[in-house]
Design a protein around this nucleic acid. Structure first.
Lengths: 204, 204
DNA sequence: GAAAAAACAGTCAAGACTGAATGTTTCTCG
DNA sequence: CGAGAAACATTCAGTCTTGACTGTTTTTTC
């Protein structure tokens, strides 16, 4: 009699888990130790995966990191959608949206992504993989932000205001990497919420 | 008879030149090759300085980079002041100021600084040197921007608007590292100039 | 149930980077 | 002019990282 277990399930599953562990370990390393601290050895150790197993799945460091790039994009996407679903409606919706964005842009995922961006700037191979992915993520973020704010992009200036908001977030995230910037950031975002609201609602 | 040349001048001068060459080479390497591409060997080669001379002046890589950090701050400062002096007065002063800032935040000096920031995040020693320096540079930039825009910081919201402008620049600079972003940036800054002007001038 | 394939483990050699050690030239001062 | 110091040059050893290689276990398929 034929077993009901799908073909290759055991091994595939095991293999999948190993890869998963390697991915999360890679991203953790990027966030905690930075780009040059993320060596294949350290990643393997942290993932609890032998060096051999690691090389079996990702033959070179470049391969490992490229896979991590895509995995990171996926994880970021999920995190965004999860947070977005929990947003309150009503009066200070704008402030809440900005707050959520700020949290995303100051968290560990952003820091890992930052390491990748900066490394990709001077690494042709990595750059070729990061650029299109980041473009996609950027478009999605833009779309989602518009949706969350209920903005009307056909109005003049609205598109730019949204873009400015996201660029501002990137800047705030960058500023936050060296020192804890939360107090200043709160005041700044409170003001920006006012300005943004006015830009979105006004007729021009 | 005693020579008119001040004591130790020849050697001091030579020494100074060597250090200068090492500094500019270090910053060039950071901008072109990134943090991990900036090895002591490469810097020495590019500076046209022997490995021995390099080690004579900066005994460790950390020492070399820390010196480069301070040198970078000085060069950035000079560049800012030079550009600021050439700004036109009159109607679209705000747009001109934003344009100048954008150029600074997308140039090679910003990219070198970016490498340092990101590296400093996970390098305790480097961080200890970068943080206070960056705080100083940040304050100066803020002061200068206020001055250039003729803004009145005592008005509510003005301080935050200036900070947001600078944070936005950081974000735009970051976005520009991977792809040429100038078209989008121009449109965005044109709108930002309007918004900023309104915030600065309005009574609230 | 045996062969084949996949996953995994452990070791090793080549290359790169850093910093130390030592030798050589140039300059200053008495 | 000669001694001593500073600047500079060259070589070398130690460490780290990567990726290749070989062996072992588990799983699937015929």
């Amino acid at each position: 009699m034929v077993t009901a277990v799908p073909a290759r399930s055991r091994q595939e599953e095991r293999s999948q888990q190993t890869r998963q562990r390697l991915m999360t370990a890679t991203i953790e390393c990027l966030a905690e130790l930075g780009w040059s601290g993320t060596t294949t050895t350290v990643v393997a150790e942290r993932a609890g995966v032998s060096r051999g197993a690691q090389l079996h799945h990702y033959r070179t460091r470049a391969e490992l990191v490229l896979a991590a790039v895509e995995h990171l994009a996926e994880v970021r996407r999920e995190e965004v959608l999860r947070e977005a679903a929990a947003l309150p409606a009503g009066e200070n919706r704008t402030a809440a949206v900005l707050d959520m964005l700020a949290r995303l842009y100051t968290g560990p995922l952003f820091q890992a992504a930052l390491e990748l961006w900066v490394a990709a700037r001077t690494d042709e191979e990595l750059r070729a993989a990061v650029v299109p992915l980041e473009a996609k993520v950027g478009r999605e973020s833009h779309r989602l932000t518009i949706e969350l704010l209920g903005a009307d992009e056909s109005r003049p200036g609205v598109r730019e205001a949204i873009q400015a908001t996201l660029d501002l977030m990137r800047g705030l995230g960058l500023a936050n990497t060296l020192t804890d910037d939360s107090a200043r950031r709160s005041r700044l975002l409170a003001e920006w919420a006012r300005t943004l609201d006015r830009t979105l609602r006004e007729a021009r």
